[in-house]
Computed example of a mutant assay.
Amino acid sequence: MDPFTRAMTSACNGVKNLKVNHSPVDFSAQLEKAPLSLSQPADGASYDIVEVYNTTLVEYASKGWLAPLDEWVAKNGEASGVNDIDPALLEKMKYDGHLYALPNQQNVHILMYRKDILDGLGIQAPTTYDELFAAADKIRAAEKSETPFVASFNADSDISTAFNNALTSQGGSWVNNEGRPTLASPEGAAAINDLRKLKSYMSSDALTLNNAKAVAALQNGQAAMGIIYAGRGATLIDPALSKFSNDFAFAPAPAAKAGGKPAAQWTQDGFAIAKNSKVGFDTLAGVLATSVGDSAMTNGAPFAVISRTSKLNDPTLQAKAPYWQAALDTLEAGADTLPLKPFMPTIQQSTRSFIVEAVNGAGDPMEALGKADAAANSALKSAGYLK
């Protein structure tokens, strides 16, 4: 159980006539079970509090499934610690001007690398893809690793994130101002070429790698550099989990091109109250607040980029999470979230197979990206987002 959930379940123990049923499930199961419960009448709902991310929050809030927290925070923000959360972070937990979740952590892609290998070859931490390609070539030539780079390129989901990172760093976007897909663009083609090049430095099973497998490649010495969500850094420096725990260093995510923003995606995790819950709102809000309380933040510090500003600035906690600074520097350099629009899951799901086709191919990326735009347009029309 993660420290944020543990804080909430512990808080429930002292509430009279409140029985806690905690049902931890993996991410895929969350995406299936949470909407099913949230969309039910109160008598059929399974969950009173649900974990949300910036993209799922937009989906759930746009459908009226979550209870707004604005009034409660206005009254209790100082005492609960919510006022200690960066306003920019809270803004990402809003939809249509209303706050729907309390963020306990944030995440962003950073560069994780074997400092001993790079230092030994006279390589500085890469700040652009071209520098990363050059570093990978040098590592491979020195026979330090045949597959010097790793990232989460899983064809079932994560390849969309990798494409987003390269696309936005190249200056492109998923949609235009009218909400119409614009992947078949010079920036989109450049992003595909970037991913093809990155993939050439990865193992042959690159399109099966999720975040856990990517981290494992660094832990066991298969790869020397990786662009991975910052929160995974804790497992690299744990001697019980990593053969090279003393040899890793962290740096901001490289940009796809010089002068571009980092090729990284900013995400936020938090908890929200189901609007169809039969439990009293104030009771649930009080439980929710413990996920951003002092204890949860302190216990979560080694494993996540926590949300409370005062805790992020605590030198004792900083020492436990040496990857924090790289994450904060990546955000300072301009890394951002996906467009927080209800239609984004539809676009990503409808285009993913064509992105995989493009990354796996060797021809003009515009052909596959044109198919992606056509599929996204059709899906958006079917879902009522486009006419």
Rank of each mutant, 00 (worst) to 15 (best):
G122Q: 11
G44Y: 05
K199A: 13
T147M: 08
E146A: 15
F133G: 04
M366R: 15
K257H: 03
A136M: 02
L118M: 07
V20A: 13
Y60S: 11
S185T: 14
D158F: 15
P186D: 10
D158A: 15
T267E: 02
A289N: 06
S291H: 08
D86H: 00
F27Q: 15
A274I: 05
A134F: 09
W324E: 04
G300E: 12
V150H: 11
T128P: 10
A216K: 02
F153Y: 13
P252L: 05
N165Q: 11
E367S: 08
S145I: 04
S277H: 12
F133W: 08
A376M: 10
F281Q: 10
L167I: 10
P252R: 05
G44F: 03
T147Q: 08
S145N: 03
A74E: 03
N104K: 10
F248P: 06
L118C: 07
A136F: 00
S169W: 07
Q268W: 04
M297P: 00
K33P: 01
T351D: 09
A7T: 05
L284H: 01
I117A: 15
P87S: 12
S39M: 11
K243D: 09
M1G: 00
Y323W: 00
A45I: 10
D116Q: 12
R114F: 06
E146T: 14
L90S: 01
A321I: 00
F354V: 09
R140E: 10
Y95N: 09
W266L: 03
W65P: 07
K16F: 00
W324N: 12
L380H: 08
L207K: 08
G14Y: 11
L209H: 08
K92P: 00
L195H: 10
N13G: 06
M93N: 03
P365A: 13
V279E: 08
M93S: 06
L57G: 11
T128G: 14
L380W: 03
A11R: 08
I237F: 07
A304D: 08
V15L: 14
A74R: 04
L90C: 01
